[in-house]
Design a protein around this nucleic acid. Structure first.
Lengths: 139, 139
DNA sequence: ACAATTGCTTCGAGTAACTCGAAGGTCAAT
DNA sequence: ATTGACCTTCGAGTTACTCGAAGCAATTGT
């Protein structure tokens, strides 16, 4: 089964621009061209793209991903380095999830606070303190 | 208590460059200057910066954050809009956490796979399928 | 007392990873 | 025959930093 760039973009939830960008940067080395020079994607290319999307979404740079994919093409000698890269990415992602949960708590607090304000028609008593001091004219 | 830009950077875990960037873009409207034109940060400025860091880390653009902070300075009439913004950010962050957890599962799988390979000194049988077909020379 | 160091400043250029528009080729359908 | 739907490349634009250079002020070492 083969796909156009738009079908792939749809399937993977990224833009055609990104896909071309990844291809131009050597991250999709097996993508073929048809008679009109259009890119032709196979299921195996989608597997590669899936890895790319996963690593990008978890904060690995395009350059590092390229390196990882190059390692994968260099055979089993590179398994230890790939292992280290994935361990690092695992740790980074765990940390990122924790950070986001912390930030989410902050946002939840804001949401609840504003909801209360709107329910009670009370003035905002939880503004950063300098707003109360320095822009008292607004109160 | 007041702080230098380096102290703030340390405290907040961001670079001095970012802090200057936020200040230049009107997101830290209350930061003062000393006799030598150096920025002087108060605890109240740290509260603002805390919000900025939280919203940036959860994917809000600098422009939107600026708008949110402007709303906060415009008084209680803007509470409903701020509420909507935080609801949106809440949803976005929940989604982002879910996505990351999914990606983490993919990475965990890779880590385990490589760990097994290294333990058993076996060739990699889980490469994306085109690597096995098209670069069989490496095996 | 004077030079060196430290720490801040602004300004302008550079970077990563897209993002987009323009100009153009191919093909199916009206 | 031309319209429209896709695809292409190329080059410029965008966001959010990131950095280096040049300069000023206060402190520190000799």
């Amino acid at each position: 089964m083969s796909y156009t760039i738009h079908e792939v973009a749809e399937k993977m939830g990224i833009s055609t621009y990104s896909i071309r960008y990844y291809h131009e940067h050597g991250m999709l080395p097996f993508v073929q061209r048809d008679a009109n020079n259009n890119r032709v994607f196979e299921d195996s290319d989608l597997e590669w793209l899936n890895i790319i999307v996963c690593l990008r979404a978890t904060g690995m740079s395009v350059e590092r991903i390229k390196h990882y994919l190059d390692l994968a093409q260099d055979g089993d000698d590179t398994v230890p380095e790939r292992y280290e890269m994935m361990k690092e990415q695992q740790a980074r992602t765990l940390q990122e999830i924790q950070d986001l949960q912390q930030h989410l708590a902050t946002i939840n607090f804001k949401v609840d606070h504003y909801a209360q304000l709107m329910e009670n028609h009370e003035p905002d008593s939880f503004l950063p303190s300098n707003l109360q001091q320095r822009t008292a004219v607004n109160q």
